[in-house]
Design a binder for these strands. Structure first.
Lengths: 173, 173
DNA sequence: GCCCACATGTGCGGATTTCGCAGTTCTGAG
DNA sequence: CTCAGAACTGCGAAATCCGCACATGTGGGC
């Protein structure tokens, strides 16, 4: 079980599509994928254990992980349940904009209560997720701060009632 | 710089709000909060370093982290940029349902392409985030699988054009 | 007030893991 | 064919993790 994984690894990185154009970082072979999957299960798993799982030495895993972090391909972080940490109101806000989306998106991005900003194709130009402590806080953010932004034509809010699923398992498929 | 932080810690856990009612896990004093913040910056930061930052011994930090993980208050994981990992189409889907929301939400939760499911108050009953490899895949999930679910009256899709912000910094405020 | 149970924190070794580095293998360009 | 760069391995030293025995502290029950 030493030689085979080497050959299997060298066998495939070429094979398929490098048609990944848009991105800065080149691709991501299956070994790095496997490493990421390991760290998605447990971000603190020792390099040696990961190495055993993916067929690489401890040092090699360490180098790859370091590079993935440096390149910004992944980050290893603690994620929490907002409710437990004291944020009891969350909402998704759909925003419609007159003119250029960028300045509005940037303004939303700059707000600490905004966790998530994405420009979309559809009946909203921008979707933003808001995390707040309570109703007053939420109202303040939506009504006073977001709707006051220049260029914002209208907003529609979806207050969260119950979070059913929240995973971080991209790449595990 | 050894005695003071101890006193500062014992000074406050009592003081303020324990008015946190709704949740299963009561808690979370400011020390655990501080630990979480440390791990949100770097999920692999050594316990000793965290201890120095929050004023606790290495062993105490280790115990607290373990408990936070066991209780499900937080998890330490690798998170990735979906685009880099080969998922080039994402969308938020708003769903409207006839009757009980639960079965539909559960069905969505069961789909591996669905990252995120939340029941909301507003013009959609459920919001679900979809992560796919390409347009065909996305079309398949939305048109064939989601709209086919019993109880689903209508859906509206917001295809992601550009992700502007994505943080995991709850508690850091 | 007293005592006990339980939760939390501290201080150790010893086992593991991380880290840096030198040497080897592989691959692609010229 | 040769050379340069990238990636992998092996290894010793330093740092970290882990389990455990021993304080400390808080809240009942009596």
């Amino acid at each position: 079980m030493h030689s085979e994984h080497v050959s299997s690894r060298s066998a495939e990185p070429k094979g398929s599509r490098d048609t990944r154009s848009g991105n800065t970082t080149p691709p991501l072979d299956s070994v790095s994928l496997a490493i990421i999957e390991q760290l998605q299960e447990d971000g603190r798993r020792p390099y040696a254990a990961i190495g055993k799982a993916v067929g690489l030495s401890e040092a090699a895993v360490r180098q790859r992980v370091q590079k993935l972090l440096d390149q910004g391909v992944m980050q290893i972080v603690a994620v929490t349940d907002p409710l437990t940490v004291g944020f009891r109101r969350q909402a998704m806000v759909g925003v419609n904009v007159d003119g250029d989306l960028e300045p509005v998106a940037d303004a939303l991005t700059a707000m600490s209560e905004v966790e998530y900003v994405v420009m979309t194709a559809g009946s909203f130009d921008i979707l933003a997720e808001i995390v707040c402590e309570d109703d007053d806080h939420l109202l303040d953010v939506i009504n006073k701060r977001i709707r006051a932004l220049p260029g914002v034509r209208s907003t529609e809010s979806f207050v969260y009632l119950k979070l059913k699923k929240q995973t971080y398992m991209w790449g595990t498929r």
